[in-house]
């Protein structure tokens, strides 16, 4: 079991990134919708803090994954029989997925940072953007702006909706390759080759 990708399959590190992040992203989407709908503000507060921490982790993992992808430029080849439009769609959707893996945590962080609640002396109390209670994320907006925070919120939500759409396409395509085309696309992300 090699860490390196080959033209036949994915190395274990690429697969680990894929499945760990898949789990985290699906959990975060469900988590996000659940907590947004909560009426109990105390429960919501606790969940939002956890959401921020996991979001930070997703962002860091996405960066590491992209670095690994750039270091490891060799990737398993797509089936030669695959129509050109599907090859294009695959590339575009993967770029979109990587972009959203960065965009969504970033806009979440900017939304919280731009909130006046994150300011020193905020009323009723300051809400720092902590990561698992260990350290505070940087605050690019020393003086909060409710409208700016709302704009980032809209961007965050729009990003999530786009991500859901892309994930549906991604999962449907993977299943189509496994069930209809019976090629190695899904298998090599599960077993390596």
């Amino acid at each position: 079991m090699s860490v390196w990708n080959t033209t036949d399959g994915w190395g274990w590190l690429a697969r680990l990134f894929h499945w760990v992040m898949a789990l985290m992203i699906f959990a975060m989407i469900g988590f996000g919708f659940y907590m947004s709908g909560l009426d109990d503000l105390i429960a919501k507060f606790e969940l939002v803090q956890t959401h921020k921490s996991v979001g930070f982790t997703v962002f860091v993992l996405a960066l590491l994954r992209i670095v690994w992808r750039l270091v490891q430029r060799r990737t398993p080849a797509l089936p030669e029989t695959m129509p050109r439009w599907q090859v294009m769609a695959s590339h575009v959707s993967h770029v979109g997925l990587y972009a959203l893996m960065l965009f969504i945590p970033l806009t979440g962080w900017l939304m919280s940072s731009a909130s006046p609640l994150n300011d020193e002396g905020a009323y009723p109390f300051r809400v720092p953007n902590m990561v698992f209670g260990l350290f505070e994320m940087p605050d690019p907006f020393q003086s909060g702006d409710k409208d700016l925070s709302a704009l980032f919120h809209t961007m965050h939500e729009t990003g999530v909706k786009l991500l859901i759409a892309l994930l549906l396409v991604h999962v449907a395509a993977a299943l189509k390759h496994a069930i209809v085309d019976r090629d190695a696309i899904l298998r090599r992300m599960v077993r390596g080759r």
Binding site: L38, D39, D40, L41, I42
Partner: peptide, 9 residues
Amino acid sequence: SYIGEGRIA
């Protein structure tokens, strides 16, 4: 009740 936000017991 925080108007438009939610509740705290």
